[in-house]
Nucleic acid binder design. Structure first.
Lengths: 189, 189
DNA sequence: TTTGCTTTTTGCCATATGGCAACTGATTTC
DNA sequence: GAAATCAGTTGCCATATGGCAAAAAGCAAA
């Protein structure tokens, strides 16, 4: 739980009482490898924070290929914000890539906290904005770079997850085939 | 100005008095083709809304190539939110691709509005979030598709700007060379 | 119209990546 | 320990895209 408190305090100040309110609503949750935190076609009803493990957001393109849109590892929020906020169906899956431990809030509690704690909405907006900006900044450069550079960039951005996720997931994140990625890795060493 | 009012009212309600407050702070501004709304290395100090014209956000990669990160056309906010909010230097240019008319707010006025108008902060957060989500959703699929599909997707997303921007900008947006894009266009017809 | 300038198209060849299938190596299951 | 399974690697060849330079087309100024 400390990790989460530290995380949110990066974005604004809260007193102990407020922190306790938040902590009381938090549900510790385990997510088994391969299982889903939220699914395409359903409305996302939880906000999560990853304490341990790696997840990914993925979807299927019109050729039926599974595409990894991004990875989310420890100490990050995990929420399909568009689905959660607007109560519309999600278009992507959030899947545990390894066994995960998370802290989660259901929608009712989350709303209650927003209504109760002065300044919590600002903190939330900052957290969400930062996460969204990060997604753009990470994904965008991939479009214009060749496969090797993309992979190197992936290593920079996610230094701790290369050895924890299947090659095929990384390949689909980078927009190349698994074979190509395998060859690229050989050439880098 | 009406376009802007309609735009913000999509994200929440405001009474006439509040709208007037906003309108009074708004500065109508023209931006000549090729000139910059904000520049890399500087802190962005304005929030803009495009009434007419097309802009793009671009930067230079480590090979010195100019990359178009995205286009922003009429009826959209234009702001480097990370730079504006956190007062850090921007890493990208916002450039007029055609002559533009915009409505702009300087930082002081913008802050004043946020402090004065109840609910304005929520509206702003919604506008920004939506814009950010849109950026992710538009840019992300490009990574995994081939050049022709990217171009078709570009046409869908930006139906009204193909003929208003140089081919080279579109090519750099799609992460392909201008020659390739030219050939792709030939094949599509 | 002519001239000059910019943008777009095209040709030629090189190279990166894809597609597919076989192979290897590690891990699990019986 | 043998067999099955799964993830990753490799080989072979096809194809898309890049790099570069020249040609063509479009556009604006004189």
């Amino acid at each position: 739980m400390n990790e989460f408190i530290n995380y949110i305090l990066q974005f604004g100040n809260l007193n102990q009482q407020q922190i306790d309110l938040i902590t009381n609503k938090a549900i510790e949750q385990e997510l088994e490898k391969e299982s889903y935190f939220s699914e395409a076609g359903k409305i996302s009803r939880q906000v999560g924070f990853i304490v341990e493990g790696v997840t990914r957001v993925c979807y299927y393109n019109n050729k039926g290929e599974e595409i990894t849109k991004y990875f989310i590892a420890e100490n990050n929020l995990v929420v399909d914000i568009e689905s959660f906020d607007n109560e519309i169906c999600s278009s992507a899956y959030v899947q545990a890539v390894t066994d995960c431990k998370l802290i989660a809030f259901n929608k009712k509690d989350w709303k209650e906290l927003l209504a109760t704690i002065i300044g919590w909405d600002t903190i939330v907006h900052r957290m969400i904005s930062k996460a969204l900006i990060q997604k753009v900044e990470r994904r965008s450069p991939l479009v214009t770079e060749d496969a090797t550079e993309r992979y190197l960039k992936f290593l920079e951005i996610y230094p701790n997850i290369v050895n924890r996720v299947p090659l095929s997931y990384i390949a689909s994140y980078l927009g190349i085939t698994q074979s190509s990625l395998s060859r690229i890795r050989k050439n880098i060493r």
